[in-house]
Design a protein around this nucleic acid. Sequence first.
DNA 1: TAAATAGTGTCTATGAGACAATATCCG
DNA 2: CGGATATTGTCTCATAGACACTATTTA
Lengths: 244, 244
Amino acid sequence: MVDHSQLTEAEYLAQYNVQDFDAPLCTVDVVPFRFHNHRLQVLTCLRHQHPAKEQWALPGGFIDISQDDNLDTTAQRKLAAKIGTEAPYLEQVQTVGNQQRDPRGWSITVVYYALFPGSAANQVLLPDTRWLTLQGNTVGQLLAFDHNQLISVALERLQNKVQYTSLPVYLLPECFTLADISDVFLAILGKTPPMRSIRNRFLNEDLLEDTGEKRYGSNRPATLYRLKKTAVAQFYNRLYHTTQ
Amino acid sequence: MVDHSQLTEAEYLAQYNVQDFDAPLCTVDVVPFRFHNHRLQVLTCLRHQHPAKEQWALPGGFIDISQDDNLDTTAQRKLAAKIGTEAPYLEQVQTVGNQQRDPRGWSITVVYYALFPGSAANQVLLPDTRWLTLQGNTVGQLLAFDHNQLISVALERLQNKVQYTSLPVYLLPECFTLADISDVFLAILGKTPPMRSIRNRFLNEDLLEDTGEKRYGSNRPATLYRLKKTAVAQFYNRLYHTTQ
DNA sequence: TAAATAGTGTCTATGAGACAATATCCG
DNA sequence: CGGATATTGTCTCATAGACACTATTTA
């Protein structure tokens, strides 16, 4: 190897080769959540290449250093390749790295999660792409690599975050009722805060607007709301007690 | 390149070479905070190698795939190399990756922050290692790479987190007063919650114990507390209003 | 005793939560 | 009307926060 103690930075960079060093593999994986039939689901794809060939895995893969501006771009590109629509909510959760998680050797993955509206239900899926229903902390089947654990990590973040944000609305279609929000809490946390508390929080000036429409059943019809055009994710400064 | 569509996974792995692909550089950087002389400070080190030679930088560097079990290990090793003692609190914040942050090309860094007790003040530092005082969102001098921004990212997380956790105690020496906690809030947030609120929160069964000692000044002496041996980081379920 | 900071008592504000009461639909 | 779910009213509880008051030291 070159002795570069005497080089200028330009000379150093000219002789520098990334591949001279043992580096970990580096990927981005996204946990795409949706709320469908009163359950939380995660999108997975069947792998056609080694390793973990013919196993189901989260959307994700290598950073394309010639195309991707930054890690968020990579995450969005991986999502776009599997779901046509852009995620209304995308957030980086954690980076996991160790020797064991990939048979090719030491690897790290930057884990994101994305929230999709339930209406993503109607969308045509690519072949070999499936929404798997959450059971407990992860999906009910064994996924490639450590992807079951990555789902747990993302879910845990989501569980914490719905306690003090307006995130549940990103899992709902354009129009929804307050009872729908309650159902989202139930799917994510296994419990739901009292409707009184949900109403107090979600029916504020900046978040929702009454569509004027109602959802009819064999009972009093429920008001349908939609996200205000100007709405952004809101943060509240207390947690619910009843969901802990 | 080999056509590996027909290979077994074992055959695939045998011929797989990490370096066949354009991968980003991959590092871990730690923002070590301490509270000293009523200010928040960050430990930095003078670089002796290219790139950014002779510039001050955060402790950090490449993952050692032959030594490090996981990313937390890498962070702890990088810290240990610069500060003898282990960090009482270490947390992964975010992973930043883009083309611009390192002159060698596309690179990612997993950012951690660590909290050290003010008594780390007394400790002997390695040469070319300095605690820099925070000014605004970062330190007052230009650091290597995007390290000023990484400090901002870590600080922002710390600012959020002190609002609903017991983290301030990890920046204090073994024995401290409630006024010291207030000073930590001031250093981190620029404001401090009312002493009444600090007392209500921090003087609970599980966190602190009275040492029996007092700190004397030209006034009523203050009770000195210490962390209970069994204490872990606590989470509260409201934010302060006065510090927002 | 005065200055200064530590610590307590108490009332208010906010928002979660329990729960009863009322509203509005369908069949 | 009766069943069912939506929505509102109201009281309680926990805790942040304002603020006055008391406590304990040094000079």
